[in-house]
Write a protein that binds this DNA or RNA. Structure first.
Length: 805
DNA sequence: AGCACGCCGACT
DNA sequence: GTCGGCGTGCTC
């Protein structure tokens, strides 16, 4: 039996990033297993923290007295070997603490809550009791929530030995339970009693008859018994008193999606789909960690390819993991998977309550669910024996987590595919440049679905030049061609989707006459307006210039901020079309739980003619009666100071265009823009992903951007601007010293929104091709950042950032 | 993170 | 001389 446990304590610091050794008391030695959560004493005094067992041994390199493990929190390990290895890999690649990685991999309810309380050790004076224990003892002692005087007073009493601090670590994990019923007597005996009481107590007799036919060793929920036997809980209580049945606590799962679903069968595939399924199936059967890019236009039946591939994995006795963007994880989408695989499906996403998440997690952990569908963090689902991993809409930026650990679910998926020797399928109509480039290099097998499954024609896309519109009809959010098209649909009782692009809302200036956007002379990236300094700044190199009052290109005076809000647009639209019913969908109108689905359902039932919304309406909604899609401002994202601006614009326009004419009626799309000649817009019009890819790759090559270069972003933030800036300059000095001459260091520059939550942000971006010293240099920076962290300076490292601003 | 130790100025 | 401010190091 192992004497010593290697524990990662739940204290996220550099010094505790390696496991600490704890003695295993004899009474726990048969309980402690690697992968379990434990509570251990940590530090001086009696402070308790939670931790995770990552190893067992009989020796330790630590030459001090070992403290004993206090409690074991789990009956079975919560992290298997794979997930522990994954956590280590994640920690190194994302520059995060190991324990932080583990926490993100586990469901919320398995995160423990440390609690501090104080209680008197002797009798205190009435005055002391009144001041410090007005609600009695013990009381909570959270220094961050109490006022300074109380904290000081309590600490003083502690030094005097009059009060003591007690620690507790709460485990939030709680399975939902209900009362279970089991027969306490033999069927024959129960029947005998039933016959006796039949006349006087018919209900009791019914219950007895029901109990008599129950399997002896099975426990059934009380509610189910009551329903099936046709009795009330009161009758059951009486029966329990008479000793006919026994009550017990029964663990149940909360079922988040209890609507019944009609089962579906595999659909007939077209030749392209069939090729895709065959290739993926080969990889599943051959246990190859081969990766695929399924590139399919909207409506080309990617989902059917996924479902049949999953079916194949299940048939081989293996499991499947399917990732979808949070926004696409609607009940419709989930039901589609459940209709095919039924009870084997588990769903993981943030819309579920903590308890529901935990239950789904346990179903997966116990092997009861073999198909997992979920958003980003579902990539850590404890599925074993994976046969396939699918990531739909792989280009979605929400797959990257924007807090520590800053991981990309795609990278984790590829890691797990490798571990399980199973294929990873990345799917998109508009793959990210990185993924498409890797496919071009042969790292992924490219499977193209070029035909729409139901052979609908692609929608006709019109580009409306807003510069012309401005000249002809003045400043309006709605062009004449778009309004005409809207009116036509209203007359025909067809529906309309209008998208307002909120990204980049009024943070840059654009000329309304010629579409000119001010760019940095060094970086070819848009300059951002800074009202605090009244200047235009480049967030890559720090270049700064005055806000222009006339357009440097055409000398027009109509150069100004660009951007509008959905509410304003809705009001304007209501004025123009007083009879049309308009539904608005944006961050504000969907804040409440379920609002998102409600709006979509209303629109689906044709309770409104027009759905007006932000980017969220571009994703996956499928309404047969929508024949017109209008994009009010295609340019806003183009103006952002981000090298992915064109990519994002192209993806968004292509996606939203796919919303038009999905059934029998042909669709039309109107894109309003001040940049009608921009390649992202032109190529979105012709729906030509391949040409966009080639063009954009050329741009990336010119600018030394990904996928030609790797990138790391470092950010320093502090309440005082000078502190953040100085830290960043020191970091840059360290980088210049430690890295090769080939590394390109951009910055330091203030962030686009330099001040967020009373803190100033400065950043630097490193672009590199090969930099063996990068990891050690960044580790050294992390280490050095520990000291000033005490004074509120935080430094973050983001490998392959999604937002360069 | 949270606690103790140690070094400084301001106080009874 | 001591109380308590904060800066620093350490926690198996």
């Amino acid at each position: 039996m192992a004497q010593i446990g290697q524990i990662l304590v739940d204290v996220p610091t550099m010094q505790t990033n390696d496991p600490y050794s704890y003695a295993i008391p004899t009474e726990l030695e048969h309980q402690v297993q690697v992968g379990m959560r434990v509570i251990v004493p940590f530090g001086r005094g009696h402070r308790l923290v939670s931790g995770v067992v990552v190893g067992l041994s009989d020796v330790t390199s630590f030459d001090g007295k070992l403290k004993p493990i206090e409690t074991v929190l789990d009956l079975a390990p919560v992290l298997n070997t794979e997930l522990r290895q994954l956590a280590d890999w994640l920690a190194t690649t994302t520059y995060a603490f190991r324990i932080t990685c583990i926490q993100t991999m586990l469901p919320n309810l398995l995160k423990t809550q440390p609690k501090r309380q104080v209680q008197p050790t002797t009798t205190l004076t009435p005055a002391e009791m009144a001041t410090y224990f007005p609600e009695g003892a013990p009381r909570d002692f959270d220094a961050t929530k109490l006022d300074d005087a109380t904290v000081a007073g309590l600490l003083k009493l502690q030094r005097a030995g009059k009060v003591e601090v007690v620690y507790e670590v709460k485990d939030k994990a709680a399975a939902k339970t209900t009362t279970g019923i089991a027969p306490a007597l033999t069927p024959a005996k129960l029947q005998e009693i039933a016959d006796k009481v039949a006349k006087r107590a018919p209900k009791q007799a019914e219950l007895l008859v029901y109990l008599a036919q129950m399997p002896a060793d099975k426990v059934v929920a009380q509610a189910a018994v009551a329903k099936k036997a046709g009795v009330t809980p009161a009758v059951i209580a009486t029966a329990a008193d008479k000793g006919w049945l026994t009550k017990s606590t029964l663990e149940v799962y909360r079922d988040p999606f209890h609507q019944p679903v009609t089962p579906t069968r595999a659909l007939k595939l077209n030749p392209e789909q069939q090729v895709a399924v065959d290739r993926i199936t080969q990889a599943i059967d051959g246990q190859q960690s081969k990766n695929f890019l399924v590139e399919g236009v909207t409506g080309s039946g990617k989902t059917e390819v996924y479902l049949q591939s999953i079916a194949q994995a299940l048939q081989q006795g293996r499991t499947a993991l399917m990732l979808v963007p949070e926004i696409a994880l609607t009940p419709q989408m989930v039901n589609r998977v459940k209709a095919r695989f039924g009870q084997r499906v588990a769903v993981l996403h943030s819309g579920l309550s903590k308890g529901e998440q935990y239950d789904e997690w346990r179903r997966i952990d116990r092997g009861e669910a073999t198909v997992v569908v979920g958003a980003r963090s579902a990539v850590f689902a404890p599925v074993e024996n994976l046969g396939i991993i699918i990531m739909d809409e792989e280009h979605e930026s929400s797959y990257k987590q924007d807090e520590n650990p800053r991981y990309h679910a795609r990278d984790v998926a590829l890691w797990r595919g490798q571990y399980h020797h199973c294929p990873v399928v990345l799917g998109s109509a508009t793959p990210s440049l990185e993924t498409r480039a890797r496919a071009a290099k042969g790292l992924y097998t490219r499977l193209v679905l070029s035909k729409r499954a139901k052979a609908q024609p692609m929608p006709t896309v019109h580009i409306v030049d807003m510069r012309e519109q401005l000249k002809q009809q003045g400043d309006s959010d709605f062009s004449e061609p778009l309004m005409t098209a809207i009116q036509e649909r209203l007359d025909r009782h067809e529906q309309i989707v209008l998208m307002l692009n909120r990204r980049g809302y009024s943070s840059f200036v654009m000329c309304r006459d010629c579409g000119f956007v001010l760019k940095c002379p060094n970086c070819d990236i848009s300059l951002t307006l800074h009202m605090d300094t009244h200047s235009m700044k480049c967030h890559y190199c720090g270049h700064e210039e005055a806000i222009p009052h006339v357009c440097p290109n055409c000398h027009s005076k109509k150069i100004r901020y660009y951007g509008t809000g959905t509410q304003k647009v809705q009001q304007a639209l209501e004025k123009l079309l007083p009879t049309a019913k308009i539904l608005r969908m944006d961050v504000d109108s969907t804040r409440r739980k379920g609002a998102h689905e409600r709006i979509l359902r209303q629109f689906g039932e044709h309770k409104a003619d027009i759905l007006l919304g932000t980017q969220m309406i571009a994703k996956g909604l499928d309404f047969p009666n929508v024949t017109l899609v209008g994009v009010l401002n295609a340019d806003t994202a183009l103006g952002l100071p981000d090298f992915r601006a064109s990519e994002r614009t192209f993806q968004l326009l292509t996606q939203v265009s796919g919303r038009a004419g999905r059934a029998t009626k042909p669709g039309e799309v109107y894109i309003q823009t001040f940049n009608p000649d921009h390649y992202a817009i032109q190529l979105a019009q012709s729906q030509d992903y391949e040409r966009f890819f080639v063009t954009e790759m050329h741009m990336r090559h010119q600018g030394n951007y990904p996928p030609y270069y790797f990138a790391v972003q470092l950010t320093a933030s502090h309440e005082e601007e000078a502190v953040a800036a100085k830290a960043m300059f020191q970091i840059v000095a360290a980088l210049k010293q430690g890295l090769s001459k080939d590394a390109i260091i951009l910055g330091p520059t203030p962030k686009a929104i330099a001040r967020v939550k009373r803190k100033y942000y400065y950043q630097v971006v490193i672009k590199y091709k090969q930099e063996p010293q990068l990891r050690p240099v960044l580790e050294q920076i992390r280490q050095a950042a520990q000291v000033p962290a005490r004074h509120g300076l935080s430094v973050t490292i983001d490998s392959e950032p999604m937002n360069f601003m």
